[in-house]
Design a protein around this nucleic acid. Sequence first.
DNA 1: GAACGTGACTCAGAAAGTTCCCC
DNA 2: TGGGGAACTTTCTGAGTCACGTT
Length: 611
Amino acid sequence: MKKYYAALCQLIQNSAKFNRDSCVYFVRKYARASENMLMPRLVRVNTKTKQQWEEGKHTDGQKWKSLEHKGPLFPPEYEHLPSSVPFLYDGEPVKLSMSTEEVATFYAKMLDHEYTSKETFQSNFFTDWREVMTEDERKLIKKLSKCDFSHIHSYFVKKAEEKKNMTKEEKQVLKEETDKLTEEYGYCLLDGHKEKIGNFRLEPPGLFRGRGEHPKMGKLKKRVQPEDVIINCSQDTKIPEPPSGHRWKRVQHDNTVTWLASWVENIHGHIKYIMLNPSSKLKGEKDWQKYETARKLKLRVDGIRSEYRRAWRAREMKQRQRGVALYFIDKLALRAGNEKDDDTADTVGCCSLRVEHITLHHHLDGQDYVVEFDFLGKDSIRYYNKVPVEKQVYKNLKLFMEFKGPEDDLFDRISTTYLNKKLNEAMPGLTAKVFRTFNASTTLQEQLSKLTVDDMTVEEKILAYNRANRAVAILCNHQRAAPKTFEKSMQTLQEKIRKKKEDLENAKKELKQAKKAHKECPTEKTRKLVEKKEKAVKRLAEQLKKLQLQETDREENKVIALGTSKLNYLDPRITVAWCKKHRVPVEKIYNKTQRDKFAWAIDMTDEHFQF
DNA sequence: GAACGTGACTCAGAAAGTTCCCC
DNA sequence: TGGGGAACTTTCTGAGTCACGTT
C-alpha cells in the first residue's frame, strides 16, 4: 500500500507539471461540500492547491483520518398481505405464517420473468422456501407445482399500477420522503468533507437471480440484520446508532480501508460493502491513478510486446503459454480469467479458456491462421470472434491443444497470479486489466482523431464521438440486450425521415416556384417569399440530416453498451481535451453523474492532452 | 513456493425512475 | 399545452480482478 501512495504522490507532482491547476478540482469540491455543511469554506486558490492537497495525503496506507456516517439504511420490515389476497395450495386457500408469506411474495413478484420457469430456479427456491416454513406448512406444502401465487402476483401488479397512477402531489410527497432519507443517510463526512455514499441502502431480501445459467438462481437472499453488519468509522466521531432494540455485529475503526459498513451475504458467503460514490475524492484519486498506470504502459508496451513475442518460441511450455495468453489479453482485450468456484455460472477469461472455447482454422474466409473464439465471459456475455493470428501463435495453440479433451484448460501451465507477477516485474503496478484500460483509451484517442473533421457540425462530431466510443465497446465486448422497443422506435424514426424527405421535396418545389415568380415580376414581397422559402429548405435539410444521423447512431448501437467503457475504461481527459479542441460542450458527452465522476479531469485538462 | 482462502476493490448489464420531446 | 412514450439517468447488486496471508 505504501508504494501506491508514494506512486500517487509522484503522479500528482507529474500531473502538476502538466497543469498547475490540477488540484483545483478537489478544492472546488470541498468548497461545495462546505457550503452544504456550513463549514469554513476553502478558497479556490491555485498556487497553494497542490500543497493543500498533498497535506491531506497519507503515505502509510491510510485512506482517511476521520470518517463519520449514519450507518446503512435498512429496508422496511415485511407487512402481511391483506386477507383478501390468498395463496392457494392445491386449489385451497392457505393462511401462511409471516416469513413463509414474505418469501412467497418474492416468488410471486417474479412470475413475469422467464427464469421462474427454469428448473434450477424453482428447485432452489422451493428448497429454501421450505426451510423458512413452519412445521405444519412444511407438512402441507410439498410440491411447487401445486402452489398458486397468481393472486399475490396480481396484487403486486395492481399496487405498481396504483403507484404509477398517483397524483402529482402524492408523488411529490413520496419524493420528499426519499430525499429526506438520502440527505440523512446518503452522505458521510470524510476528513471533514461531505461525500456522497454509493449504496447506503442495505440490499433488501429477495430471491437470488445471478447472471446466465447460475446454479444458485432462485435461492433465498436473507434479510440483513443489524447484528450482521460491521460498521467502520473513526473512533473520535459519533458512532452510528443501530436500529432500536438491536446492536451492530462490530464497530471498527480501520482507516486502511474505504468502506463504511459490511456484511456477509448468505448465497456465497461473500462480503458486501457500503462504499463511497464515484464522485468522491477517494474514488476520483483512485480512478486518476488507474489511468496514469495505463499511460505508463504506453511508454513500455513496445518492450513488453517484444518480450511476449519472444516467449512464443521459448523452450519452456509455460513461457509459450504466457506469451500467447498475454498476446490475447493485449490484442483482444480479454480479461485475465481467474479460477472460479464451481457454484457459479460457467464463464471464463483468458487464463481459464478451455480447449472447447477455440477452433483453429488454417484458412477461413480468405485469411490464414484464424482462431475462432466462442465462450461466455463475465456476466455470461458471449464472446464470439474470428481472429487471424500470427503463424507462431497458431502453431503454439495447436501445441497447447495436443492430447487434450474439450474440457481441458488451454493454458494449463499458467495462472492469473503468475501472469500478473511477470507483468509486475516488467512494469511496477502492471496487471492484466491495465491492458484493457490502455487499449481502450488508446483506441478512443486514435478513433477520435481519425473520425473528427473540423468543419463538422456539433451533431456530426457527437456521432463521431459515439463511433469512437463504440469501437472501444466492441473491443471490450460490452453488449446489451436490444431494447424491447427497438424495432418500433426504429420504425417511427424511419417514418419521420420519410415524412421529412417529403416535406423537403415540397419545400424545394415551393422555393422553385417562388424564385420563378420573383424572376417574372420582382417585388419586395416576392423577394421576401424567396428568402422565406430558402430558409425553410435549409431548416428542413438540417432536420433531415439530424434524423438520419440519429438513425445511423441508433442502428449501430442496437446491441452495444457504450456506458461501461465510457465510465470505466476511457481516460476522461481524452474526452475533455477533444471537447475543448473541437468546441463541443462537454455536457453533450458527459451527463451530470459522469461530470461529477470526472470532475478531476474536466478541471485539469486542456485541449493538448495526449493519453 | 504453490495452492488456497479471504478481503477489498472495480467493472457489469438490467431494471427502475425521471426527463424530454413530439403530436 | 398536456399526455404518452421514448430516451436518458440512476440505482441495484452480481461478477469480476488482484493483493495478501496462511497452510
